[in-house]
């Protein structure tokens, strides 16, 4: 049965897929016009996912995301917004769409299929702090992922410049220094947001009188690991003033940790925090 949600999701994915194709074509043909169309399509692609999330939220009576599909959708929408705002609008960065948009499309496909949204949150944790906890976590994920994608572009450009490949891709990717600067901004934002999210997470557990089960929650463990990588990065940049290739490497490592925290855990356990779930969608 094809429900409205499935159709909306497919429309969204189709828009993102078209945007990816155009983004790659824009990079190959060095066309600004094609890249602009790609960005427009990607922005349009986020809308169906927002509508589906709204449906789910209204049905459950509280803020999503809880399921894998929801989490991946929110992540993708935030990442799209972060890219459009930070890279395109504020810094007029070109050429990165061919890396960012296909990545988002891939994540969205990973999030399929749309599960039924019967999973609901235990009422004891439904409050304003939870909302901040979720939003700041996703801003953090999106910013850090963007930093990771910038780091990939940085390493590609570094390699091209070292190997004296002057044509094509080298001319279409942003200057090394631009990417370096943006990476550190994104890492800074992500660090702040993840810290807020973790602190609120701990407070929420305390507030609701939860037991010790959260300590072994895979998500919590992975998040703490990721946070450590962040701390190293922020130290490298803020206190040691490090730039360049090594920073890009550490960021990519951090993003891999984050992907494990976020995607990996999500794929294994099918929910955000297992121990908080009630309802039909709960993983065994």
């Amino acid at each position: 049965m094809w429900g409205t949600e499935s159709i909306l999701t497919l429309v969204g994915i189709a828009l993102y897929a078209a945007a990816s194709t155009l983004a790659v074509a824009a990079l190959l043909r060095a066309s600004r016009r094609v890249e602009n169309s790609s960005l427009l399509l990607a922005a349009a692609g986020a809308i169906p996912f927002l509508i589906v999330l709204l449906f789910h939220g209204m049905k459950a009576g509280h803020m999503r995301p809880l399921t894998r599909f929801e989490a991946f959708s929110v992540y993708s929408v935030f990442l799209t917004a972060a890219y459009l705002f930070s890279c395109v609008k504020r810094n007029r960065l070109r050429g990165l769409a061919a890396i960012v948009v296909p990545y988002i499309t891939f994540v969205l496909i990973l999030g399929l299929p749309v599960e039924r949204s019967e999973v609901v949150l235990a009422p004891k944790v439904q409050n304003i702090w939870l909302r901040i906890h979720i939003v700041s976590a996703f801003i953090g994920y999106a910013s850090f992922s963007l930093a990771g994608l910038l780091a990939v572009a940085y390493l590609i450009q570094d390699r091209n410049l070292k190997r004296r490949r002057f044509g094509g891709l080298t001319t279409r990717l942003p200057a090394l220094e631009t990417m370096d600067r943006l990476m550190s901004i994104q890492v800074g934002v992500a660090f702040l947001m993840l810290t807020v999210s973790i602190v609120l997470g701990v407070l929420l557990v305390r507030l609701t009188g939860g037991g010790g089960e959260w300590v072994t929650d895979p998500k919590v463990v992975a998040t703490v690991l990721t946070w450590c990588v962040f701390a190293i990065l922020v130290h490298m940049r803020a206190w040691a003033n490090r730039h360049g290739r090594r920073v890009a490497f550490v960021i990519i490592m951090g993003v891999l940790c984050l992907l494990f925290t976020f995607v990996g855990v999500q794929v294994i356990s099918d929910s955000v925090h297992d121990y908080l779930m009630v309802g039909a969608g709960k993983a065994p």
């Binding site: 450009q157 200057a175 090394l176 631009t178």
Partner: peptide
């Protein structure tokens, strides 16, 4: 041009 591929400011 090469300088601009490395530095932005």
């Amino acid at each position: 041009e090469f300088t601009e591929r490395v530095f932005d400011n």
